[in-house]
Amino acid sequence: NLYFQGLKYMVPGARVTRGLDWKWRDQDGSPQGEGTVTGELHNGWIDVTWDAGGSNSYRMGAEGKFDLKLAP
């Protein structure tokens, strides 16, 4: 699974964008943008601060869902 392989790169400072299971509307800005991981992966959740200004926790394994992917 590509998403599980990418988890080791989901570290503080990593750049991310919305992924396969995104369901959080425009939390990442409008139009959709990139963000920066600000915390360690914990119980399948990870913290992100978006360039647009907001921050929140997103699923990276929790509930079998992956809200994020590494930015290109």
Rank of each mutant, 00 (worst) to 15 (best):
D51L: 05
G6V: 15
T38S: 11
L68D: 01
G35N: 02
W22V: 04
T38N: 08
Q32C: 14
M10S: 03
D47W: 14
I46F: 01
W24Y: 11
I46E: 00
G53Q: 02
L41N: 07
D51R: 03
G44Y: 02
F66M: 07
G54I: 13
P12A: 11
V11S: 09
P31V: 07
D28P: 06
K69H: 09
A52L: 08
G61S: 05
P12M: 13
L20W: 12
S57Y: 10
P12G: 08
W24I: 05
W45P: 00
Y9C: 15
V11W: 08
T38W: 05
E40Y: 14
G35Y: 04
R25E: 15
V11G: 08
W24T: 04
M10V: 09
L70Y: 09
M10Y: 14
E63Q: 12
Q32I: 08
L2R: 13
G39A: 09
P72D: 14
L20M: 14
G61M: 00
G29P: 05
L70D: 03
V48C: 02
L20F: 11
V11M: 09
F66Q: 04
A62V: 06
G33Y: 05
L7I: 12
G53H: 02
P12L: 13
S55A: 11
D47M: 14
S30M: 12
G64P: 00
R15T: 02
G44F: 04
A52P: 01
G64H: 08
S30F: 11
G19D: 04
N1S: 12
S57L: 08
G13H: 04
D21M: 03
W24L: 05
G6W: 15
G19H: 05
A14P: 02
N56P: 02
G35W: 02
W45H: 03
G64Q: 07
G13K: 03
D26K: 06
T17W: 06
Q5G: 11
I46K: 00
K8W: 10
H42G: 06
Y3C: 15
D47V: 14
Q27V: 06
L68I: 10
M10G: 02
Y9P: 07
A62L: 05
G33F: 05
A71K: 09
W24C: 07
F4S: 11
G64R: 07
K8D: 12
T36C: 09
K23W: 06
K8C: 15
G6E: 15
Y58S: 00
G13A: 03
G61F: 04
F4E: 14
L70H: 08
D51K: 05
F4M: 12
P72E: 14
D47N: 13
G13Q: 04
G33T: 11
D28T: 05
T49F: 08
S57K: 15
L41Q: 07
P72F: 13
H42S: 11
T38C: 12
W22C: 06
T38K: 08
V16K: 00
L7F: 10
Y9I: 08
L7T: 08
D51V: 03
K69C: 15
L70T: 05
T17I: 15
K65Q: 07
T36L: 07
R18K: 06
S55W: 13
S57C: 15
A71N: 07
A14W: 04
T49W: 07
P72V: 14
M10W: 13
F66A: 03
P31K: 07
Q32G: 14
L70I: 10
Q5L: 11
G53V: 00
A52W: 13
V37W: 00
W50E: 00
G39C: 10
G35H: 01
S55G: 09
K69Q: 13
I46L: 12
P31W: 07
G53T: 02
V16H: 00
E34H: 13
A71F: 07
R25K: 14
I46Y: 02
Q27E: 12
M60Q: 01
G6M: 15
D21S: 06
R15E: 01
G35S: 00
K23G: 07
G64L: 07
G13D: 02
K8N: 11
P72H: 13
Q5W: 13
V37G: 00
E40C: 15
G44R: 00
Y9V: 08
L70Q: 07
G53L: 02
T38L: 09
D21N: 08
H42V: 13
L20I: 13
N43M: 12
Y9K: 09
P31T: 09
Y3E: 15
P31F: 08
L2S: 14
R59F: 02
H42D: 09
I46G: 00
D28M: 04
M60P: 01
G19K: 05
Q32P: 15
D47K: 15
G13W: 05
V11P: 06
G39T: 11
K69F: 12
G29S: 06
H42E: 10
K69E: 12
G61I: 02
L7M: 14
L2K: 14
L41H: 07
N1F: 10
V37E: 01
W50C: 00
D51N: 05
D51C: 03
V37H: 04
P12R: 10
G54E: 10
Q5A: 13
G39F: 05
S57T: 12
A62I: 06
N1E: 14
R25H: 15
G33R: 08
